[in-house]
Design a protein around this nucleic acid. Structure first.
Lengths: 360, 360
DNA sequence: GTCCGTGGTTGGACCGTTCCAACCCGGTGG
DNA sequence: CCACCGGGTTGGAACGGTCCAACCACGGAC
């Protein structure tokens, strides 16, 4: 119930009201164990009454903690609305505020500009930590941050540096493995892989799960895969070839865009998606939900929470000898089964949820 | 070239190096016209040399400016990846940093939580201003902010309060009008409207442009429209009816999701999208680009810049008598023509860019 | 020659916190 | 009886800037 016209309450004003020193009020908030029960109660009452909140800027001056975490917001994003990074951003904001911190955003066109932005953020705003996404090969960014000993957590493995610490990622291989196993259970055996060209860490990881699950089941993979750019038309053409010429009955894809292309191919061949030829995507974008496309969903909320945990561990390291907190975290994804890969589904239901049913 | 181990340069350290007082250094940065040419040059040299940047927190203590702008990041977003708000967020971040400010994010599940978040952000972080999105009817949020006299800019008109100031929006009617005119030029006359149920300001606005353009062309609109939820399957069924039973040859849609449903219907009827039946979406989501769907693109970059301008105007109002700066801004969108509405397009090109061509 | 105004510069108070050293006081141990 | 200890509390310095009033030198007006 704080008045409008009046000034913001300060430590001093609270102290005056509670008839104690500023320091005692500060202790009530930061080190309650130092304060006797009676005073604690009295001071707390005043604090609640006037709605006092410490001013972060003032705290920051002495404690050198801004309670701000910086993250770069990327311009272009993945093909379909960048939903994964968006959801991640949202989840990260939430996780951060649960631990009393806030996220500040910045943009950068290239690596050089990004380091410039770091400099500005650290020097001016004194941000406490950084969350990185999409760390690439030979990154000058990580080097800069490490040199300054700034807490960092990255969402996505630093593929070029297997010993890298302090990252959180989703186990892509586990995702595609689950997809293949789901398709095997549906009776499919000719299961193809529609992926990206070799060389991208994420893409290779996802492909590995397919290879793994196929060979575990004693099935061949030769001739059943393709590496393409993330383009719908190209994917459609390729999928068409795989289904028509190679007898493929199921396609596991590295992304929802590729899967959407595959769906188009199935339709073009006059096969029924789901019943005749199954398609599974990756990332569970809104498009997948809208089209009834089975897809592998990334646990973004858990990933964001893990990032914040990593940062907290680096910000206030426990007593010496306590367990290291910058251990990498690898999270399992979740397969969301929809009509595009479900033979058991009610055909009528499949028809409504798949907006591109075969011609009569 | 600032050393690593050494402490951050401060106003005092710069002053000592340049043999002037702290105040003069401050003047060099904030009021250069007060400083003589010679000293200006000398001080500036030292500043550059040591890479000095004022600490925002310290400035904030006296000036009561945090250089932070807060924006709520929404959890669910529109159907297709919320690409508009994402692009807006990115553009806003960029515009903000061009004027030396930063964006901080926050989340809130309901209006009450949102006001709580305002309180926290204002009291603790002392954010300078807020950017709102999706202001709805009888908003308690705006009231709270206005009571505190906090600078606000909203992206999206406050439909319930036509006299509201300080908003930026995109002229939806102009967008659909352009779409209809484009279709008229292609020779269409039976142009339907696939929109949302009446009552949403944005939806009604977009519909108005269709009505307007149709009647300007002397064409009837009766029986050529439908108001639906933003669902792909429903849109498909409705579009099917419009095309099959009403002889519609072109559909203008309130969103890309609806348009995608319409595309499905066209395909299902064995008509060729683009050549036989045209479809136009709204928002120009990545899905539209991937599918070759003509769509109305919102000028998010301009909208973001306009929001920042509005805030700047409120933060430091010019001399009395200067023009009011919280005037609403209404921006024209841009029609992005793709294969889904282009009869002149190379049929082969249309075939590759439209992944769901008719069955042979 | 005194007075004034003005461009350039300065010292010091101040913003709202936390850190640090000191203080007070009742209880113990010598 | 005094030194010592430790829980509870206090005053003051410090953080790194900005705001304000004063100061200095100097040229022009009277």
């Amino acid at each position: 119930m704080q008045d409008d016209g009046t000034d913001r309450p300060t430590l001093a004003s609270v102290a005056a009201l509670a008839q104690v020193s500023k320091q005692t009020v500060s202790n009530v908030l930061n080190a309650p164990h130092l304060v006797s029960g009676a005073t604690l109660e009295r001071v707390q009452a005043v604090i609640d009454e006037v709605g006092y909140r410490p001013l972060r800027a003032a705290q920051q001056m002495r404690s050198h903690r801004s309670q701000l975490i910086a993250m770069r917001i990327e311009p272009v994003r993945e093909a379909f609305g960048g939903s994964v990074l968006d959801q991640f951003l949202h989840a990260l904001t939430r996780s951060a505020e649960e631990s009393g911190q806030r996220l500040v955003l910045f943009t950068a066109d290239d690596a050089e500009a990004e380091v410039g932005a770091y400099d500005e953020l650290v020097a001016s705003f004194a941000v406490d930590a950084f969350v990185l996404t999409g760390t690439s090969h030979g990154d000058p960014r990580t080097a800069w941050l490490r040199r300054r000993r700034l807490p960092v957590a990255s969402f996505g493995r630093p593929w070029d540096d297997p010993d890298g610490r302090s990252w959180v990622d989703v186990d892509g291989a586990a995702g595609t493995r689950a997809a293949v196993e789901h398709l095997l259970a549906q009776g499919h055996t000719r299961i193809a892989w529609l992926g990206w060209p070799a060389g991208s860490g994420t893409g290779d990881d996802r492909r590995a799960g397919w290879v793994d699950a196929m060979s575990s089941a004693g099935l061949p993979v030769a001739g059943l895969e393709a590496g393409l750019p993330d383009d719908l038309a190209v994917a459609q053409a390729t999928a068409l070839g795989l289904v028509a010429a190679r007898g493929v009955t199921a396609l596991v894809c590295a992304s929802d865009s590729l899967a959407l292309g595959a769906l188009g191919a199935v339709r073009e061949l006059g096969r029924r998606p789901g019943s005749d030829v199954a398609v599974v995507g990756f990332d569970d974008s809104p498009v997948a939900a809208a089209l009834g496309l089975t897809s592998v969903a990334q646990p973004v909320v858990a990933a964001a929470a893990a990032c914040i945990d990593l940062l907290r561990g680096q910000l206030d390291p426990g007593p010496p000898g306590s367990p290291a907190v910058d251990q990498p975290v690898l999270l399992p994804p979740r397969l969301v089964v929809r009509a595009s890969s479900d033979r058991g589904a009610d055909p009528a239901a499949a028809a409504t949820s798949l907006p591109f049913p075969p011609s009569p």
